[in-house]
Design a protein around this nucleic acid. Structure first.
Lengths: 127, 127
DNA sequence: TGATATCTACGAAGCGTCTCGTTGACAGTA
DNA sequence: TACTGTCAACGAGACGCTTCGTAGATATCA
């Protein structure tokens, strides 16, 4: 039953807050978001309601201030988003996406090392 | 003057056709798209008109059947899209995006090798 | 010339996203 | 009880995306 829709930009911003903070009230999410760009409380509320309908978040109504939680962990959503972009713009080729990512942004030496290890592991599997 | 907007899904599908075929008429783009999912000619036309307004494509009107061309090459658009995703879902960390991409889709041995070479080059630059 | 095919242009409609104002429920406090 | 603050719910409006129907211009051909 569970094909969750791709989150929109505004929804993703909310998910980032929920991943960082864990279960949060509308007020908490709103304060976090308003720190970067001021907005109105009810906008955040409305988005969380829509996200609940879509299944992107779950809601605990046992307290007066409802608690919202991201339904999928950050890693899973990231994989979904990357897979999506892969199909839409890279004809499914992960290799080319990686090339573009590494060319467009510098990665730290530690990250590069980690990627190298992942490559070793992947090539080992094929081996 | 040139901050082009991020192309939508339908727009990206059209851009893919233009990158593959080069300058094309509405009819050619539409036939290519309809192969995968049937649609109406004027839908493709309307999208190309909007994309012209946005600057995503340019139009050569010298012939009766106008010729549309992608304004940016595929590589550049791909870098823009990856950078966008990086900011929206990976807090700017290219390393983590690469990890997710490689974990979520198998890459060919040749691609892995190419990535390895890129890593060598990048680490060489850092010295 | 007149009929037909091929194009572009235009506008509207359905839908989703995002924002915001208003209302009403509920708790705490004087 | 009355006042105040906090919260969710609801609905409307603006905008963008996508689709499509229709109209009008232009070429082709009998």
């Amino acid at each position: 039953m569970d094909k969750l829709p791709r989150p929109t930009d505004a929804e993703l911003a909310i998910l980032r807050v929920l991943w960082r903070r864990g279960p949060s009230t509308v007020k908490q999410v709103h304060e976090e978001l308003s720190r970067r760009s001021p907005s109105v409380y009810t906008t955040t509320l409305k988005l969380l309601q829509i996200m609940t309908e879509k299944g992107l978040v779950t809601r605990d109504e046992s307290l007066r201030a409802h608690l919202y939680t991201a339904r999928l962990p950050e890693e899973e959503t990231q994989m979904q988003l990357v897979g999506d972009l892969l199909d839409r713009a890279f004809e499914g080729s992960a290799g080319r996406l990686v090339m573009r990512a590494l060319s467009s942004r510098p990665a730290s030496a530690a990250e590069l090392e980690e990627i190298r290890k992942l490559l070793d592991r992947l090539e080992g599997e094929k081996g």
